[in-house]
C-alpha cells in the first residue's frame, strides 16, 4: 500500500520537477496495486464517485486521452472529454477563459494537454481543480515518465543503478525531459543520444550524459528508449532526411546489439516505423515492452488521480 510519509504534497501534477524520490516511490507502489486490480477484472471502484474529471486537450492525442479516460472511469469519476482544436483558438486568451468556464462547472480534476510549454502551470494558477499535465509543448509529460518508470521497475526489479539510453529528438521531447528528471533523480545513469541539432543546450545540467554516436551511447545499456521524431523537425531543416536519421539514429537490431543482452526496448508511441525504430525491434516480444507501457499507463494514471483526489502528491 502507498505510504503517508511523503513530506511534500502538491495539489497539481505539473511535472516531475517538484516531485521527490519518496513521492515517486509512493506513486509507483500505488500504481502497482492498480495493475493487479486491473488484471483481476475488479476494475470499477467508487473512489472518485461524484467527482468530475475533464480531459482538456488542445492538441490531438488518442492514447493519452483514452488512458486518462479509462483511469478516471475505473475509479468511478464522471469523465468528460473536451477537445479544443488550436486553430479555432485565438492564442492563449481562451486558456484563461476556459479556466473560468471550468471553475463554473465545478471540475475536480483537470487533465491538460497543450502545445505550449507552461500552459498547464498557467491554468493551475486560475482553476480550482487539480491540474494534471498530460504533455505541454516541449516541457514535461510526467505521467509518461511515471509509467515508463513503473514498466522498468516491474521488469528489472529496481529503479536505480540502471543505465538508460534515451534516443532521438531530445530537444523537442517532453517525454525525454520528464524521463531524464525522474530517472536521474532515482539514481540511474541516464544517457541521451541525438544528432547535435536535436540536442538541447547545456543538457548536462540535467544530470545526463549526451552522446552523438548512437553505438557509443547504447553500449552496456539496460534500457533503450526511442522517441518519436516529428516530421516538422525535418521541415525546419534540423535533420536532412528520414533515411539519414534512420541510418544513424534509428533503433534496429544491429545497433541494439551494443546494449546489454537483456536490454529492454521502450517507445512512448505512436511509432514511426522505419524512422526512429525498426519493426523487427519494436515487435520483438523478448525485448520490446511497448505494449506493457500502455497497460502501465492506465494504472499510473489511476494512482495519480487517486493521490490528487485524496491528499496530493
Amino acid at each position: 500500500m502507498w505510504s503517508n510519509h511523503v513530506l511534500m504534497t502538491n495539489r497539481h501534477l505539473l511535472g516531475i520537477q517538484g516531485l521527490n524520490p519518496p513521492a515517486i516511490t509512493s506513486l509507483l507502489d500505488l500504481a502497482e496495486n492498480y495493475v493487479l486490480l486491473n488484471r483481476s477484472g475488479k476494475t470499477q471502484r467508487d473512489l472518485l464517485r461524484g467527482r468530475t474529471l475533464i480531459n482538456l486537450f488542445f492538441e490531438d492525442s488518442t492514447r493519452t486521452r483514452t488512458s486518462f479516460e479509462l483511469a478516471g472511469k475505473r475509479l468511478g469519476a464522471d469523465v468528460i472529454n473536451m477537445s479544443v482544436s488550436t486553430s479555432s483558438v485565438t492564442k492563449g486568451e481562451t486558456l484563461l477563459d476556459t479556466a473560468a468556464t471550468l471553475n463554473a462547472m465545478n471540475c475536480d480534476l483537470l487533465v491538460v494537454r497543450h502545445s505550449q510549454s507552461g500552459a498547464p502551470a498557467l491554468l493551475a494558477q486560475k482553476v480550482e481543480a487539480s491540474v494534471i499535465n498530460a504533455g505541454d509543448g516541449t516541457h514535461e509529460h510526467p505521467t509518461q515518465a511515471l509509467l515508463d518508470a513503473l514498466t522498468i521497475r516491474r521488469r528489472k526489479g529496481r529503479l536505480d543503478g540502471l543505465t538508460i539510453a534515451i534516443c532521438g529528438d531530445i530537444a523537442h521531447s517532453r517525454v525525454a525531459r520528464s524521463n531524464m528528471l525522474l530517472l536521474s533523480m532515482m539514481g540511474n545513469h541516464v544517457r541521451v543520444i541525438a544528432p547535435p541539432t536535436l540536442m538541447p543546450a547545456q543538457i548536462g545540467s540535467l544530470g545526463v550524459t549526451p552522446y552523438n554516436d548512437m553505438v557509443e551511447g547504447l553500449k552496456g545499456a539496460d534500457i533503450v528508449m526511442a522517441l518519436r521524431l516529428q516530421k516538422e523537425r525535418m521541415n525546419k531543416g534540423l535533420i536532412p532526411s528520414e533515411r539519414e536519421f534512420f541510418a544513424f539514429y534509428g533503433l534496429n537490431a544491429e545497433k541494439l546489439a551494443y546494449a546489454k543482452p537483456d536490454a529492454l526496448v521502450m517507445h512512448p508511441g505512436p511509432m514511426n516505423r522505419g524512422v526512429e525504430i525498426d519493426s523487427a525491434v519494436a515487435d520483438d516480444p523478448a525485448r520490446s515492452v511497448i505494449k506493457e507501457q500502455v497497460e502501465m499507463g492506465v494504472a499510473v494514471r489511476m494512482a495519480v488521480l487517486d493521490m490528487l483526489a485524496r491528499e496530493g502528491i
Binding site: Q17, S117, G118, D136, G137, T138, H139, E140, R174, R177, P200, A201, Q202, I203, S205, L206
Partner: peptide
Amino acid sequence: TEGARATMMGLPGIP
C-alpha cells in the same frame, strides 16, 4: 536565453 534554464523548461532558446 539558450541554456540550462530554457532546456529544463522546454522553452525555445535564443543564444
